[in-house]
Amino acid sequence: MTEDDVRQAIVNGLAEIAPECDPGALRGTDPIRRTLDIDSYDFLSLLIGLHERLGVDIPEADYGRLGTLDEMVAYVVERVAKVER
């Protein structure tokens, strides 16, 4: 699983949740929830989707590390590596 795969999976998840937005236009350093108006229900749905697609389990205590797209990608890549090891 490459970093690009992870980024694509996240962007696809966001596109499902916020179909009227263009997640491709989301910059890596933009705060995801504020930029795309993602509420806590949507956010949890996004993480459940990532869990189903990538097999990563993201504890609630780590939500603070998922603020921007770049942060989320880095975090998920790290978690996937742990799972694969």
Partner: peptide, 17 residues
């Protein structure tokens, strides 16, 4: 809620609402 959600798989987590 935090303790409860730590125990739960992600699909079963509860929102504060």
């Amino acid at each position: 809620l935090a303790e409860e959600n730590q125990r739960r798989p992600i699909q079963d987590r509860l929102l504060a609402a």
